[in-house]
């Protein structure tokens, strides 16, 4: 835009050194495209409709949660409790559905509605407890959410006695179609992911709340001095993270057709890895939905590649770890070059 200002001594970085093109998210997008291209050439199965459908569905669960975790990471925090939250919310939802099954016969959807409300309340409670302990009490995000990881997983076993729970009743079919159906040829989880990612991008970059999230991650003290309601914004990030996890957990329940007490066990690491690979900075102040989606997609494509290449699945975690370090390394090198 023209401001009428004349600059004599302030240079401007060339286009490839600023904005999106200089971000880690951009590098990961390029890496993703190259890997996908390589796999398309090496394996005829990769681009087949069935395989792409499976990849996109599998990575959606992780990506939806990564969207929420990215918010927490942007504030400079971390949420380790998302894997357990997925399981606990899925279990509470399914068990409520089963408990009220048959009570609302003739009123389709009501039982599922009640079950989803119970799941929603569980998500809210977990997010609020995390957020208040971090923002108001001042506990470390790492320790707080590590504790919540254990509490929520423990509750999964307490309420189920360790037995898996399968949705029953008339509304079970409704849950399956909402979680595992299709819209315009896309699997439902992908549809939810695209909608949520789009909304989040809009809110992060075009609302005061989003701006405050980045400000807190950049300089929390400055944000406070400038009148940002730091505590409320932080709490909202943890609540949204728990809501995203709960939602993904319910989707997984509908996809699997039953919920084991160890659902999504260890997912927190894959989810945080996806955010970080996509450019979220654990020191706070950077990250976004595009990065979270790309990071999740990259991980899934590599997992898929190993499967198609008949590499032992034991190599997966090792490779994902390497990619995390590589992504952060490339970003560091770039930052050093930019000065």
């Amino acid at each position: 835009m023209s401001t009428g200002l004349h600059f004599t001594n302030v240079g401007r970085a060339p286009w490839h050194r600023r904005g999106f093109f200089a971000s880690q998210t951009f590098y990961v997008a390029v890496a993703f495209a190259l890997i996908a291209l390589g796999m398309a050439i090496l394996s005829p199965i990769f681009l087949s409709g069935g395989n792409l459908y499976n990849i996109s569905k599998n990575f959606s669960f992780v990506a939806i949660v990564a969207l929420g975790v990215t918010l927490v990471i942007v504030t400079g925090g971390i949420d380790l409790s998302v894997g357990s939250t997925m399981a606990l919310v899925a279990l509470v939802t399914v068990m409520t559905l089963n408990a009220v099954a048959g009570r609302f016969s003739g009123l389709p959807g009501l039982a599922l509605g009640a079950a989803l409300c119970a799941g929603l309340a569980t998500s809210l409670a977990i997010g609020l407890i995390n957020g208040v302990l971090v923002a108001k009490v001042g506990l470390s995000p790492f320790v707080t959410t590590l504790g919540m990881l254990s509490i929520a997983r423990g509750l999964c076993y307490v309420i189920t006695d360790g037995r898996g729970q399968a949705p029953q009743g008339d509304d079970a079919e409704l849950l399956y179609s909402l979680a595992d159906g299709q819209l315009l040829g896309l699997p439902m989880p992908v549809v939810y992911l695209l909608v949520l990612a789009g909304l989040l991008g809009l809110v992060l970059h075009h609302s005061a709340w989003g701006r405050h999230l980045f400000a807190i991650g950049g300089n929390e003290r400055a944000a406070r001095l400038c009148g940002v309601r730091v505590d409320a914004v932080k709490i909202s990030a943890y609540v949204l993270s728990a809501l995203a996890a709960g939602f993904a957990g319910v989707l997984m329940a509908g996809w699997l057709g039953s919920v084991p007490a160890n659902l999504a066990f260890g997912y927190e690491l894959r989810i945080i890895a996806a955010s970080v690979i996509g450019g979220a900075n654990l020191a706070g102040g950077a990250g976004g939905p595009l990065g979270a989606v790309l990071g999740s997609a990259l991980i899934e494509v590599i997992r898929n590649g190993l499967v198609l290449g008949k590499v032992s699945p034991y190599w997966q975690d090792t490779l994902i770890g390497l990619i995390i370090i590589l992504a952060v390394l490339v970003d560091r090198l770039r930052a050093r070059r930019a000065g």
Partner: peptide, 27 residues
């Protein structure tokens, strides 16, 4: 009291951003 990761304009208006539209669509 500046946030390094934001632009100059974003820092100037931090905490009192100008918005338009009607709630809840105030961008």
């Amino acid at each position: 009291a500046l946030a390094d990761n934001l632009t100059a304009a974003a820092n100037v208006f931090l905490g009192r951003e100008l918005r338009r539209g009607v709630w809840p669509f105030r961008l």
